[in-house]
Design a binder for these strands. Structure first.
Length: 458
RNA sequence: GUGGUUGUAGCUCAGCUGGUUAGAGCGCUGGAUUGUGGUUCCAGAGGUCGCCGGUUCGAACCCGGUCUUCCACCCCA
Protein backbone atom coordinates (compact mmCIF):
# COMPACT_ATOMS: atom_id res chain seq x y z
CA UNK A 1 0.00 0.00 0.00
CA UNK A 2 1.09 3.56 -0.61
CA UNK A 3 2.90 5.05 2.33
CA UNK A 4 1.59 8.31 3.71
CA UNK A 5 3.53 11.06 1.97
CA UNK A 6 5.42 13.60 4.02
CA UNK A 7 7.75 16.55 3.65
CA UNK A 8 11.16 17.02 5.29
CA UNK A 9 11.45 18.46 8.76
CA UNK A 10 11.35 22.24 8.82
CA UNK A 11 9.77 22.63 5.37
CA UNK A 12 6.21 23.68 4.56
CA UNK A 13 3.54 23.58 1.89
CA UNK A 14 1.77 26.87 1.24
CA UNK A 15 -1.98 26.97 0.60
CA UNK A 16 -3.62 29.59 -1.66
CA UNK A 17 -4.55 31.67 1.39
CA UNK A 18 -1.00 31.55 2.70
CA UNK A 19 0.42 32.48 -0.68
CA UNK A 20 -1.94 35.46 -0.85
CA UNK A 21 -0.63 36.66 2.51
CA UNK A 22 3.00 36.05 1.61
CA UNK A 23 2.56 37.86 -1.70
CA UNK A 24 1.02 40.77 0.17
CA UNK A 25 4.23 41.11 2.21
CA UNK A 26 6.49 40.51 -0.81
CA UNK A 27 4.74 43.16 -2.87
CA UNK A 28 5.02 45.79 -0.16
CA UNK A 29 8.68 45.00 0.45
CA UNK A 30 9.44 45.06 -3.28
CA UNK A 31 7.57 48.29 -3.77
CA UNK A 32 9.73 50.08 -1.23
CA UNK A 33 12.93 48.43 -2.42
CA UNK A 34 12.19 49.94 -5.83
CA UNK A 35 11.26 53.38 -4.54
CA UNK A 36 14.64 53.47 -2.81
CA UNK A 37 16.34 52.67 -6.10
CA UNK A 38 17.25 49.01 -5.57
CA UNK A 39 17.35 46.61 -8.53
CA UNK A 40 16.51 42.91 -8.36
CA UNK A 41 18.92 40.05 -9.03
CA UNK A 42 18.70 36.29 -8.50
CA UNK A 43 21.41 33.74 -7.85
CA UNK A 44 21.37 29.91 -8.04
CA UNK A 45 19.80 27.81 -5.29
CA UNK A 46 23.14 26.07 -4.89
CA UNK A 47 26.69 27.32 -5.08
CA UNK A 48 30.10 25.70 -5.17
CA UNK A 49 30.87 24.55 -1.63
CA UNK A 50 34.06 26.61 -1.52
CA UNK A 51 31.99 29.76 -2.11
CA UNK A 52 30.00 29.16 1.05
CA UNK A 53 32.21 27.13 3.39
CA UNK A 54 34.15 29.10 5.96
CA UNK A 55 32.13 32.27 5.47
CA UNK A 56 29.78 31.85 8.41
CA UNK A 57 32.06 30.41 11.08
CA UNK A 58 32.20 26.80 12.30
CA UNK A 59 28.58 26.90 13.37
CA UNK A 60 27.58 28.13 9.93
CA UNK A 61 29.51 25.39 8.16
CA UNK A 62 27.68 22.80 10.21
CA UNK A 63 24.32 24.25 9.14
CA UNK A 64 25.03 24.32 5.41
CA UNK A 65 23.20 21.64 3.41
CA UNK A 66 25.73 19.82 1.25
CA UNK A 67 24.78 18.22 -2.04
CA UNK A 68 26.23 14.84 -2.94
CA UNK A 69 28.19 14.62 -6.16
CA UNK A 70 26.49 12.86 -9.04
CA UNK A 71 27.51 9.45 -10.25
CA UNK A 72 29.52 6.85 -8.42
CA UNK A 73 31.16 9.35 -6.12
CA UNK A 74 32.34 6.84 -3.49
CA UNK A 75 34.60 5.04 -5.94
CA UNK A 76 36.75 8.17 -6.19
CA UNK A 77 37.41 8.33 -2.45
CA UNK A 78 40.78 6.95 -1.44
CA UNK A 79 40.90 4.32 1.27
CA UNK A 80 42.74 6.54 3.74
CA UNK A 81 40.03 9.20 3.67
CA UNK A 82 37.31 6.58 3.74
CA UNK A 83 38.90 4.80 6.69
CA UNK A 84 39.53 7.96 8.67
CA UNK A 85 35.85 8.46 9.48
CA UNK A 86 36.53 12.18 9.35
CA UNK A 87 33.30 13.79 8.17
CA UNK A 88 34.74 17.05 6.90
CA UNK A 89 37.58 15.36 5.03
CA UNK A 90 35.14 12.94 3.45
CA UNK A 91 32.59 15.68 2.72
CA UNK A 92 35.02 17.62 0.57
CA UNK A 93 35.62 14.47 -1.51
CA UNK A 94 32.00 13.53 -2.13
CA UNK A 95 30.29 16.95 -2.16
CA UNK A 96 31.28 19.94 -4.26
CA UNK A 97 28.02 21.88 -4.12
CA UNK A 98 25.91 23.25 -1.29
CA UNK A 99 22.53 24.96 -0.89
CA UNK A 100 22.49 28.73 -0.48
CA UNK A 101 22.74 29.59 3.24
CA UNK A 102 22.00 33.32 2.96
CA UNK A 103 21.82 35.95 0.22
CA UNK A 104 24.76 38.11 1.26
CA UNK A 105 27.64 35.80 0.40
CA UNK A 106 26.20 34.82 -3.00
CA UNK A 107 25.73 38.54 -3.64
CA UNK A 108 29.37 39.23 -2.81
CA UNK A 109 30.29 36.46 -5.26
CA UNK A 110 27.98 38.01 -7.85
CA UNK A 111 29.56 41.45 -7.43
CA UNK A 112 33.05 40.05 -7.87
CA UNK A 113 32.10 38.00 -10.95
CA UNK A 114 30.20 40.85 -12.58
CA UNK A 115 32.31 43.77 -11.37
CA UNK A 116 32.96 45.00 -14.91
CA UNK A 117 29.28 45.14 -15.84
CA UNK A 118 28.05 46.74 -12.64
CA UNK A 119 27.57 50.50 -12.26
CA UNK A 120 28.81 51.36 -8.76
CA UNK A 121 27.38 52.21 -6.34
CA UNK A 122 25.18 49.19 -6.91
CA UNK A 123 21.93 48.84 -4.99
CA UNK A 124 20.44 45.40 -5.35
CA UNK A 125 17.56 43.57 -3.80
CA UNK A 126 17.02 39.84 -3.78
CA UNK A 127 14.11 37.73 -2.56
CA UNK A 128 14.81 34.00 -2.60
CA UNK A 129 14.67 30.98 -0.31
CA UNK A 130 17.70 29.93 1.73
CA UNK A 131 18.35 26.63 3.52
CA UNK A 132 19.82 25.84 6.91
CA UNK A 133 20.22 22.42 8.53
CA UNK A 134 19.06 23.90 11.80
CA UNK A 135 16.73 22.27 14.28
CA UNK A 136 13.31 23.83 13.64
CA UNK A 137 11.43 25.90 16.21
CA UNK A 138 8.64 28.42 16.06
CA UNK A 139 9.65 30.94 13.39
CA UNK A 140 12.72 28.87 12.50
CA UNK A 141 12.65 26.73 9.42
CA UNK A 142 15.10 24.75 7.35
CA UNK A 143 13.80 26.42 4.21
CA UNK A 144 12.81 30.06 4.46
CA UNK A 145 12.82 33.26 2.44
CA UNK A 146 15.13 36.18 2.87
CA UNK A 147 14.44 39.60 1.40
CA UNK A 148 17.73 41.49 1.21
CA UNK A 149 18.64 45.00 0.11
CA UNK A 150 22.35 45.86 -0.07
CA UNK A 151 24.44 48.73 -1.38
CA UNK A 152 28.00 48.12 -2.53
CA UNK A 153 30.56 50.70 -3.47
CA UNK A 154 29.32 53.52 -1.26
CA UNK A 155 31.14 54.40 1.94
CA UNK A 156 28.83 57.17 3.06
CA UNK A 157 26.89 56.74 6.26
CA UNK A 158 23.90 58.04 4.36
CA UNK A 159 23.42 54.45 3.23
CA UNK A 160 22.84 53.36 6.81
CA UNK A 161 20.39 56.23 7.22
CA UNK A 162 18.50 55.19 4.08
CA UNK A 163 18.32 51.58 5.13
CA UNK A 164 16.76 52.60 8.43
CA UNK A 165 14.25 54.67 6.48
CA UNK A 166 13.59 51.67 4.27
CA UNK A 167 12.81 49.48 7.28
CA UNK A 168 10.50 52.18 8.57
CA UNK A 169 8.73 52.59 5.22
CA UNK A 170 8.04 48.86 4.89
CA UNK A 171 6.80 48.32 8.43
CA UNK A 172 4.67 51.46 8.29
CA UNK A 173 3.10 50.22 5.04
CA UNK A 174 2.43 46.83 6.61
CA UNK A 175 0.67 48.70 9.45
CA UNK A 176 2.99 46.98 11.89
CA UNK A 177 3.24 49.48 14.75
CA UNK A 178 5.76 49.45 17.57
CA UNK A 179 8.70 47.97 15.70
CA UNK A 180 12.09 48.81 17.21
CA UNK A 181 15.18 49.18 15.06
CA UNK A 182 18.22 48.50 17.21
CA UNK A 183 21.50 50.03 16.18
CA UNK A 184 25.05 49.29 17.23
CA UNK A 185 28.52 49.55 15.75
CA UNK A 186 31.22 46.96 15.71
CA UNK A 187 33.85 49.65 16.27
CA UNK A 188 32.22 50.42 19.60
CA UNK A 189 32.38 46.78 20.62
CA UNK A 190 36.01 46.61 19.52
CA UNK A 191 36.76 49.85 21.38
CA UNK A 192 35.29 48.53 24.60
CA UNK A 193 37.21 45.31 24.27
CA UNK A 194 40.35 47.40 23.74
CA UNK A 195 39.70 49.60 26.80
CA UNK A 196 39.20 46.63 29.08
CA UNK A 197 42.12 44.75 27.56
CA UNK A 198 40.10 42.02 25.92
CA UNK A 199 40.79 42.88 22.29
CA UNK A 200 41.89 39.33 21.64
CA UNK A 201 38.69 38.05 23.12
CA UNK A 202 36.32 40.27 21.15
CA UNK A 203 33.96 37.58 19.96
CA UNK A 204 33.58 35.92 23.36
CA UNK A 205 33.13 39.33 24.95
CA UNK A 206 30.37 40.40 22.57
CA UNK A 207 28.61 37.04 22.56
CA UNK A 208 28.39 37.25 26.34
CA UNK A 209 27.27 40.88 26.21
CA UNK A 210 24.60 39.95 23.68
CA UNK A 211 22.90 37.80 26.31
CA UNK A 212 22.43 40.68 28.77
CA UNK A 213 18.65 40.97 28.45
CA UNK A 214 18.34 37.20 28.64
CA UNK A 215 20.60 36.16 31.52
CA UNK A 216 21.13 39.49 33.34
CA UNK A 217 24.25 41.26 34.59
CA UNK A 218 25.34 38.42 36.87
CA UNK A 219 24.91 35.85 34.11
CA UNK A 220 27.00 37.92 31.73
CA UNK A 221 29.74 38.42 34.33
CA UNK A 222 29.83 34.71 34.96
CA UNK A 223 30.14 33.90 31.28
CA UNK A 224 32.87 36.50 30.78
CA UNK A 225 34.84 35.08 33.71
CA UNK A 226 34.45 31.62 32.25
CA UNK A 227 35.79 32.90 28.92
CA UNK A 228 38.97 34.18 30.58
CA UNK A 229 38.23 37.87 31.16
CA UNK A 230 39.51 39.35 34.41
CA UNK A 231 37.43 40.82 37.24
CA UNK A 232 38.97 44.25 36.61
CA UNK A 233 38.20 44.11 32.92
CA UNK A 234 34.59 43.22 33.64
CA UNK A 235 34.36 46.00 36.24
CA UNK A 236 35.61 48.47 33.62
CA UNK A 237 32.89 47.35 31.23
CA UNK A 238 30.30 47.77 33.95
CA UNK A 239 28.89 51.12 32.61
CA UNK A 240 27.77 49.19 29.54
CA UNK A 241 25.57 46.89 31.55
CA UNK A 242 23.74 49.86 33.00
CA UNK A 243 23.57 51.97 29.89
CA UNK A 244 20.21 53.71 29.86
CA UNK A 245 18.41 56.94 29.03
CA UNK A 246 17.81 58.58 25.68
CA UNK A 247 19.94 57.87 22.64
CA UNK A 248 21.77 61.17 23.25
CA UNK A 249 22.54 60.30 26.87
CA UNK A 250 23.82 56.89 25.90
CA UNK A 251 26.04 58.44 23.23
CA UNK A 252 27.59 60.74 25.85
CA UNK A 253 28.24 57.86 28.23
CA UNK A 254 29.87 55.88 25.44
CA UNK A 255 31.89 58.88 24.34
CA UNK A 256 33.40 59.21 27.83
CA UNK A 257 33.97 55.50 28.19
CA UNK A 258 35.72 55.24 24.84
CA UNK A 259 37.69 58.51 24.75
CA UNK A 260 40.98 56.59 24.93
CA UNK A 261 40.15 54.32 22.04
CA UNK A 262 40.53 55.68 18.54
CA UNK A 263 38.40 52.98 16.99
CA UNK A 264 35.78 53.21 19.72
CA UNK A 265 35.50 56.98 19.32
CA UNK A 266 35.04 56.54 15.59
CA UNK A 267 32.22 54.12 16.27
CA UNK A 268 30.51 56.60 18.60
CA UNK A 269 30.89 59.28 15.97
CA UNK A 270 29.29 57.08 13.30
CA UNK A 271 26.47 56.13 15.61
CA UNK A 272 25.88 59.76 16.51
CA UNK A 273 25.71 60.80 12.87
CA UNK A 274 23.13 58.14 12.03
CA UNK A 275 21.00 58.89 15.11
CA UNK A 276 21.10 62.65 14.53
CA UNK A 277 20.30 62.39 10.85
CA UNK A 278 17.34 60.12 11.48
CA UNK A 279 16.18 62.49 14.23
CA UNK A 280 16.26 65.25 11.65
CA UNK A 281 14.41 63.32 8.97
CA UNK A 282 11.95 61.61 11.29
CA UNK A 283 10.46 58.12 11.05
CA UNK A 284 6.85 57.19 10.28
CA UNK A 285 6.27 54.47 12.85
CA UNK A 286 9.42 52.63 13.90
CA UNK A 287 11.59 53.52 16.89
CA UNK A 288 15.36 53.76 16.56
CA UNK A 289 17.33 52.71 19.64
CA UNK A 290 20.98 52.29 20.48
CA UNK A 291 21.71 48.80 21.76
CA UNK A 292 25.36 48.17 22.52
CA UNK A 293 24.62 44.56 23.40
CA UNK A 294 23.67 43.88 19.80
CA UNK A 295 26.36 41.60 18.40
CA UNK A 296 25.20 39.72 15.32
CA UNK A 297 27.10 38.79 12.22
CA UNK A 298 30.50 39.58 13.71
CA UNK A 299 32.12 37.36 11.15
CA UNK A 300 31.76 40.07 8.56
CA UNK A 301 30.18 43.24 9.92
CA UNK A 302 32.73 46.02 10.45
CA UNK A 303 30.62 49.10 11.13
CA UNK A 304 26.92 49.53 11.80
CA UNK A 305 24.97 46.55 13.11
CA UNK A 306 21.19 46.58 12.76
CA UNK A 307 18.43 44.42 14.10
CA UNK A 308 14.66 44.80 14.05
CA UNK A 309 12.66 43.62 17.05
CA UNK A 310 8.98 42.71 16.72
CA UNK A 311 6.54 44.93 18.64
CA UNK A 312 6.51 44.39 22.37
CA UNK A 313 4.23 41.61 23.49
CA UNK A 314 4.84 39.50 20.39
CA UNK A 315 6.98 36.51 21.20
CA UNK A 316 9.21 36.43 18.18
CA UNK A 317 12.94 36.89 17.76
CA UNK A 318 14.27 39.47 15.37
CA UNK A 319 12.28 40.07 12.17
CA UNK A 320 15.17 41.62 10.31
CA UNK A 321 18.82 42.49 10.55
CA UNK A 322 21.76 43.93 8.71
CA UNK A 323 24.92 45.94 8.87
CA UNK A 324 28.03 47.35 7.21
CA UNK A 325 30.76 45.05 5.93
CA UNK A 326 33.82 46.83 4.64
CA UNK A 327 35.46 43.90 3.00
CA UNK A 328 32.96 41.23 2.08
CA UNK A 329 34.07 41.00 -1.53
CA UNK A 330 37.67 40.80 -0.31
CA UNK A 331 37.22 37.10 0.35
CA UNK A 332 36.59 36.69 -3.38
CA UNK A 333 39.52 38.86 -4.37
CA UNK A 334 37.94 42.30 -4.85
CA UNK A 335 39.44 44.71 -2.33
CA UNK A 336 38.15 47.98 -0.95
CA UNK A 337 34.53 47.64 -1.89
CA UNK A 338 32.33 48.53 1.05
CA UNK A 339 28.86 47.10 1.43
CA UNK A 340 25.94 47.69 3.72
CA UNK A 341 22.63 45.91 3.72
CA UNK A 342 19.53 44.79 5.52
CA UNK A 343 17.38 41.70 5.49
CA UNK A 344 13.68 41.13 6.13
CA UNK A 345 12.66 37.85 7.76
CA UNK A 346 9.56 37.18 5.70
CA UNK A 347 8.42 34.07 7.54
CA UNK A 348 8.63 35.77 10.89
CA UNK A 349 6.95 38.95 9.69
CA UNK A 350 4.17 36.67 8.43
CA UNK A 351 3.77 35.10 11.86
CA UNK A 352 3.74 38.50 13.56
CA UNK A 353 1.13 39.93 11.16
CA UNK A 354 -0.96 36.79 11.64
CA UNK A 355 -0.74 37.00 15.41
CA UNK A 356 -1.76 40.67 15.40
CA UNK A 357 -4.49 40.17 12.76
CA UNK A 358 -2.95 42.72 10.40
CA UNK A 359 -3.57 41.03 7.06
CA UNK A 360 -6.24 42.83 5.00
CA UNK A 361 -9.47 40.85 4.73
CA UNK A 362 -9.64 41.34 0.97
CA UNK A 363 -6.68 38.98 0.51
CA UNK A 364 -8.75 35.82 0.30
CA UNK A 365 -11.17 37.29 -2.22
CA UNK A 366 -9.86 35.27 -5.14
CA UNK A 367 -13.06 35.59 -7.21
CA UNK A 368 -15.43 38.55 -7.53
CA UNK A 369 -18.19 36.63 -9.27
CA UNK A 370 -19.35 33.04 -9.64
CA UNK A 371 -22.00 32.06 -12.17
CA UNK A 372 -24.33 29.24 -11.24
CA UNK A 373 -24.41 26.42 -13.77
CA UNK A 374 -28.00 25.44 -14.66
CA UNK A 375 -27.20 23.19 -17.57
CA UNK A 376 -25.71 23.09 -21.03
CA UNK A 377 -27.48 26.04 -22.69
CA UNK A 378 -27.53 28.18 -19.59
CA UNK A 379 -23.82 27.65 -18.88
CA UNK A 380 -23.02 28.84 -22.40
CA UNK A 381 -24.87 32.06 -21.70
CA UNK A 382 -23.04 32.30 -18.36
CA UNK A 383 -19.69 31.73 -20.03
CA UNK A 384 -20.41 34.53 -22.50
CA UNK A 385 -21.12 36.87 -19.62
CA UNK A 386 -18.05 35.69 -17.71
CA UNK A 387 -15.89 36.24 -20.78
CA UNK A 388 -17.04 39.86 -20.98
CA UNK A 389 -16.43 40.34 -17.26
CA UNK A 390 -12.92 38.91 -17.58
CA UNK A 391 -12.17 41.31 -20.43
CA UNK A 392 -12.98 44.07 -17.96
CA UNK A 393 -10.61 42.59 -15.40
CA UNK A 394 -13.31 41.18 -13.14
CA UNK A 395 -12.29 37.89 -11.52
CA UNK A 396 -15.13 35.68 -12.67
CA UNK A 397 -15.85 31.98 -13.11
CA UNK A 398 -18.64 29.61 -14.06
CA UNK A 399 -19.28 26.60 -11.84
CA UNK A 400 -17.99 23.79 -14.04
CA UNK A 401 -20.85 21.31 -13.71
CA UNK A 402 -24.59 21.34 -13.29
CA UNK A 403 -24.53 20.50 -9.61
CA UNK A 404 -27.33 21.16 -7.20
CA UNK A 405 -27.91 24.83 -6.61
CA UNK A 406 -27.30 24.27 -2.91
CA UNK A 407 -23.90 22.82 -3.58
CA UNK A 408 -22.97 25.66 -5.92
CA UNK A 409 -24.15 28.32 -3.50
CA UNK A 410 -22.28 26.66 -0.68
CA UNK A 411 -19.15 26.60 -2.78
CA UNK A 412 -19.48 30.34 -3.42
CA UNK A 413 -20.04 30.91 0.26
CA UNK A 414 -17.05 28.86 1.40
CA UNK A 415 -14.80 30.59 -1.10
CA UNK A 416 -15.91 34.02 0.09
CA UNK A 417 -17.12 35.00 -3.34
CA UNK A 418 -19.10 38.24 -2.87
CA UNK A 419 -21.45 37.95 -5.89
CA UNK A 420 -23.26 35.03 -7.47
CA UNK A 421 -24.84 35.39 -10.89
CA UNK A 422 -27.82 33.33 -11.95
CA UNK A 423 -28.77 32.80 -15.57
CA UNK A 424 -31.52 30.21 -15.84
CA UNK A 425 -34.22 29.62 -18.40
CA UNK A 426 -36.18 32.68 -17.30
CA UNK A 427 -33.22 35.01 -17.53
CA UNK A 428 -32.23 33.61 -20.92
CA UNK A 429 -35.71 34.24 -22.27
CA UNK A 430 -35.69 37.81 -21.01
CA UNK A 431 -32.02 38.45 -21.87
CA UNK A 432 -31.22 39.30 -18.26
CA UNK A 433 -29.05 38.03 -15.43
CA UNK A 434 -29.66 38.05 -11.69
CA UNK A 435 -26.94 39.13 -9.26
CA UNK A 436 -27.07 37.93 -5.68
CA UNK A 437 -25.09 39.87 -3.11
CA UNK A 438 -23.88 37.11 -0.78
CA UNK A 439 -23.32 39.40 2.19
CA UNK A 440 -26.80 40.98 2.23
CA UNK A 441 -28.69 38.23 0.43
CA UNK A 442 -30.27 40.82 -1.86
CA UNK A 443 -30.85 40.05 -5.54
CA UNK A 444 -30.96 42.42 -8.44
CA UNK A 445 -31.75 41.86 -12.12
CA UNK A 446 -29.79 43.43 -14.99
CA UNK A 447 -30.29 43.36 -18.72
CA UNK A 448 -27.49 41.49 -20.54
CA UNK A 449 -26.63 44.77 -22.33
CA UNK A 450 -26.19 46.57 -19.02
CA UNK A 451 -23.13 44.68 -17.72
CA UNK A 452 -21.44 48.00 -17.22
CA UNK A 453 -24.01 48.95 -14.56
CA UNK A 454 -23.15 45.81 -12.60
CA UNK A 455 -19.39 46.28 -12.92
CA UNK A 456 -19.76 49.76 -11.46
CA UNK A 457 -21.16 48.29 -8.25
CA UNK A 458 -18.04 46.12 -7.68
C1' G B 1 24.97 18.97 17.63
C1' U B 2 22.91 18.51 23.41
C1' G B 3 18.54 17.99 26.74
C1' G B 4 13.29 17.75 26.92
C1' U B 5 8.26 17.54 24.63
C1' U B 6 4.32 16.06 21.21
C1' G B 7 1.62 12.60 17.73
C1' U B 8 -5.86 9.55 18.42
C1' A B 9 -11.41 11.13 12.30
C1' G B 10 -10.19 16.29 7.14
C1' C B 11 -9.39 20.09 11.67
C1' U B 12 -9.24 21.09 17.25
C1' C B 13 -9.01 17.78 21.04
C1' A B 14 -11.25 13.89 25.09
C1' G B 15 -10.05 8.77 26.17
C1' C B 16 -9.45 7.14 34.17
C1' U B 17 -4.55 2.04 37.21
C1' G B 18 -3.51 -1.85 30.69
C1' G B 19 -9.75 -4.84 29.99
C1' U B 20 -15.47 -5.84 25.00
C1' U B 21 -17.61 -2.76 19.14
C1' A B 22 -12.01 4.26 20.48
C1' G B 23 -15.55 9.36 21.60
C1' A B 24 -17.00 14.92 21.15
C1' G B 25 -17.24 19.60 18.61
C1' C B 26 -16.36 21.64 13.90
C1' G B 27 -16.09 20.16 8.82
C1' C B 28 -17.92 16.63 5.00
C1' U B 29 -22.18 13.77 2.49
C1' G B 30 -27.54 13.11 2.12
C1' G B 31 -32.48 14.85 3.59
C1' A B 32 -36.22 18.75 5.51
C1' U B 33 -35.85 22.66 0.77
C1' U B 34 -36.70 20.03 -7.80
C1' G B 35 -34.17 28.30 -8.52
C1' U B 36 -30.81 30.08 -3.33
C1' G B 37 -25.48 29.84 0.57
C1' G B 38 -24.38 31.70 5.46
C1' U B 39 -28.93 30.26 10.67
C1' U B 40 -32.02 25.67 12.35
C1' C B 41 -33.53 20.37 12.53
C1' C B 42 -32.79 15.00 11.14
C1' A B 43 -29.68 11.08 9.29
C1' G B 44 -24.98 9.15 7.55
C1' A B 45 -19.93 8.32 6.11
C1' G B 46 -15.09 8.71 7.99
C1' G B 47 -9.80 6.03 12.48
C1' U B 48 -3.50 0.55 10.21
C1' C B 49 -4.60 5.32 17.65
C1' G B 50 2.74 8.50 13.57
C1' C B 51 5.78 4.04 12.09
C1' C B 52 8.64 -0.59 13.48
C1' G B 53 9.59 -3.99 17.21
C1' G B 54 9.04 -5.85 22.44
C1' U B 55 6.37 -7.02 27.30
C1' U B 56 1.35 -9.14 28.35
C1' C B 57 -4.08 -13.75 28.28
C1' G B 58 -5.07 -8.66 26.52
C1' A B 59 -1.71 -2.31 24.47
C1' A B 60 -4.19 4.15 22.07
C1' C B 61 -2.19 3.45 27.27
C1' C B 62 3.92 0.08 29.55
C1' C B 63 9.25 -0.54 27.29
C1' G B 64 13.00 0.18 23.08
C1' G B 65 13.99 2.30 18.35
C1' U B 66 12.61 5.69 14.49
C1' C B 67 10.10 9.82 12.17
C1' U B 68 7.40 14.30 13.28
C1' U B 69 5.86 18.75 16.37
C1' C B 70 7.00 22.29 19.80
C1' C B 71 10.48 24.12 23.70
C1' A B 72 15.35 25.26 26.13
C1' C B 73 20.64 25.43 24.79
C1' C B 74 24.03 26.51 20.45
C1' C B 75 23.27 29.71 16.74
C1' C B 76 20.08 32.59 14.02
C1' A B 77 15.58 35.39 9.79
Amino acid sequence: MAKKPSIPKGTRDFSPTEIAKRDYIFEIVKKHFRTFGFQPIETPAFENSETLMGKYGDEGDRLIFKILNSGDFMSKVDDATYGSKNSSALTSKISEKALRYDLTVPFARYVVMHQNEIEFPFKRYQIQPVWRADRPQKGRFREFYQCDADVVGANSLLQEVELIQLYDAVFADLKLEGVTIKLNNRKILAGIAEIIGAQNNLVNFTVALDKLDKIGVEGVKKEMLAKGMSEQAIAKARPLFELSGTNAEQLNTLDNLLSDSGEGSKGVEELRFIINTIDDLGLQSAKLEIDVTLARGLNYYTGAILEVAAPEGVDMGSIGGGGRYDDLTGIFGLKDVSGVGISFGLDRIYLVLEELGLFPETLDKTLDVLCINFGEKESMAALKLVTLLRYKGVKADVYPSKAKMQKQMKYANNRNIPYVILIGENEMNHKTFVVKDMASGEQKSYGLAQIQDFIKTL
